[in-house]
Simulated assay, not measured.
Amino acid sequence: MFLEEAARSHRLWAFFHVAAYTGARRGELLWLRWSDVDLDAAEIRIARSVSVIDGRRVESSTKSERTRVVGFGAETVAVLRRHRVEQDRECEVLGEAWKGDPDGYVFTTA
């Protein structure tokens, strides 16, 4: 499978996986916060979206302008748990240079 072979070693593996297994749009995943992720219930709440226009981050509502809850399987739970551990490790190693909030966005810049 392409996703497994080509993307697993990429820093954004979790992003690719969640996109493929939830059907969430790119902008919705870029907006996703850890507070919108319930790993025990295996679901994410999608309420907002983000675009990059002329190099600027532009936040907006979702395409349908509604909040929706999307469920996923145990494999996605495991991928997101690993991603959280890796993100916490990045934050710890980089300290103040880390571009993100540990309780904020699920997917951040390198």
Rank of each mutant, 00 (worst) to 15 (best):
L3E: 06
L3D: 12
E4D: 15
E5M: 07
A6F: 11
A7V: 04
W13Y: 10
W13Q: 04
W13D: 07
W13H: 02
G27L: 04
L30T: 07
L32W: 01
R33N: 09
R33G: 02
W34K: 04
L39D: 06
L39E: 06
L39K: 11
A41D: 12
A42W: 05
E43F: 05
E43A: 08
E43L: 05
I44P: 13
I44F: 14
R45A: 14
S49Y: 09
S49R: 07
V52F: 06
D54H: 13
R57T: 15
R57C: 14
E59P: 06
S60A: 04
S60N: 01
S61Y: 12
T62H: 07
T62K: 02
T62I: 02
S64Q: 12
E65I: 09
V70P: 05
V70F: 08
F72W: 11
A74D: 04
V77Q: 07
A78K: 15
L80Y: 09
L80R: 02
R81L: 09
R81A: 09
R82C: 08
H83A: 00
R84Y: 09
V85H: 15
V85E: 15
R89L: 08
R89W: 15
E90L: 10
C91L: 04
E92R: 14
V93L: 05
V93F: 05
L94V: 01
E96Q: 10
W98Q: 05
G100P: 01
G100R: 00
P102S: 00
P102A: 03
V106I: 07
T108H: 08
T109P: 14
